[in-house]
């Protein structure tokens, strides 16, 4: 962070929190399944930014190693999620989540 001395941990944290909040609201408000996936990815990557920034502040590499774990898990999650979505699309012919209303009490 020496290159940009005016950017402190607070800035990274604000950036990360904003992206995370955008992701949460996206999942809650979007009705398209693919966009919901992208919002989940956004949440995970927002966490990565915060982790790397904290790792730098503490001078501890374990935070950066954790980022790799998150990337691996995010890839696995997307693989599973897209498979489920493909199956859903074959049966429904749409990716609009409003069509998912079969299960009710």
């Amino acid at each position: 962070m020496e290159i940009l001395p005016n950017i402190t941990i607070q800035h990274y944290l604000w950036l990360s929190t904003t992206l995370f909040a955008l992701g949460v609201f996206g999942v809650l408000l979007r009705r398209n399944a693919i966009l919901m996936f992208m919002c989940i990815e956004l949440m995970l990557n927002a966490v990565n930014i915060a982790l790397v920034a904290f790792s730098k502040v503490h001078g501890d590499t374990s935070g950066q190693v954790f980022v790799f774990f998150i990337m691996v898990v995010a890839a696995a999650e997307v693989a599973v999620g897209l498979a489920i979505l493909m199956m859903l699309y074959r049966n429904l012919r749409t990716t609009d989540t409003d069509a998912l209303n079969n299960l009710k009490g």
Binding site: V24, I40, M43, A46, E77, I84, T97, L100
Partner: peptide
């Protein structure tokens, strides 16, 4: 079953992301 898996996936991933944050 498709719908159940999809709902579980979306909410489960959001929960994991919140846990991670």
């Amino acid at each position: 079953s498709n719908e159940s898996g999809f709902k579980y996936f979306i909410l489960g991933s959001v929960a994991s992301a919140i846990l991670l944050f």
